[in-house]
């Protein structure tokens, strides 16, 4: 019996054996896992420092067995900047949602990227404020109904959904920028590679690496998990195209 029992699935070693608190069908858990797998693959658990943001991702420290600092809303890029500057041999990642990164923390992410800070950003774009109950985010699609855009987002009132990856990619300081999704296996596998690559960029000292992940929030979207995955495919990906937006080949030097 023992010979044929082969373990095919386990939690990454860099993660704690703790069930996620996320809602059924939420993609946070999957992305957490991809980050954990990247840390394991690169063997960097003992020098990784994560920065958690405010939102559903705040409990990062409950799931990762690495050092974690909790940042105020939107400010994680500032904390990460300092940690990496003080401890240049550490591997620093921040994990932010769209309210955190694309609204209240726009200044911090833009300037960290523009300075070419050598850390990795995982940006969860689920088109709404998940934790506070599904209010409109800067990334909410046009026409999408949320708790604070009950008539559907109208560009004349609320402006347009913001494309953060495109903004980050055009800044001189960014080194690697990609947008992925985890709504189906093919997309998930690509996203996994982006995340791994983002960490590799940091380890090689290439500069700012940024991976946006289109994520489902079935609870706040009022959908089943399957419907939410289909929504990403049908509505989000056409507006937020997937793929690598930028990959520098060599680090910048003066």
């Amino acid at each position: 019996m023992a010979e044929i029992a082969r373990k095919v699935f386990s939690k990454p070693k860099s993660m704690k054996d703790k069930p996620f608190h996320f809602c059924p069908g939420c993609h946070h858990g999957i992305v957490h896992r991809l980050v954990g797998e990247a840390i394991d693959t690169l063997g960097i658990r003992e020098k990784t420092i994560g920065v958690a943001s405010v939102g559903c991702s705040v409990f990062l420290y409950d799931y990762f067995d690495v050092d974690v600092l909790e940042a105020p809303h939107g400010r994680a890029p500032a904390e990460a900047t300092a940690i990496k500057r003080v401890l240049p041999d550490s591997v620093v990642f921040i994990y932010q949602g769209d309210g955190d990164l694309a609204a209240i923390g726009t200044a911090e992410i833009i300037h960290a990227a523009n300075r070419g800070e050598n850390f990795t950003v995982i940006f969860i774009n689920n088109a709404n404020y998940g934790m506070t109950g599904g209010q409109m985010a800067p990334t909410t699609l046009l026409g999408m109904k949320t708790a604070t855009s009950p008539y559907g987002r109208d560009f004349r009132r609320e402006g347009y959904p913001i494309k953060m990856s495109e903004i980050i990619a055009q800044l001189e300081g960014s080194a690697f920028v990609a947008r992925g999704a985890v709504n189906k296996p093919a997309n998930l596998n690509k996203t996994k590679k982006y995340i791994l690559k983002a960490f590799e960029y940091q380890i090689k000292g290439m500069g700012f690496s940024f991976v946006e992940v289109l994520s489902a929030c079935p609870t706040d979207w009022g959908m089943t998990p399957v419907e939410a995955c289909e929504f990403i495919e049908r509505e989000m990906i056409p507006y937020y195209p997937l793929g690598i937006l930028k990959e520098k080949k060599v680090p910048d030097h003066l």
Binding site: L69, P72, A78, R85, L87
Partner: peptide, 26 residues
């Protein structure tokens, strides 16, 4: 050492927070 001119005082204090978390005097 490191001197960094931040984009705002909001960023500056959060950089302070990050550096302090590593145990550095800041």
């Amino acid at each position: 050492g490191v001197f960094l001119q931040s984009e705002s005082e909001v960023a500056a204090i959060n950089m302070l927070l990050g550096a302090a978390a590593t145990g550095a005097r800041v």
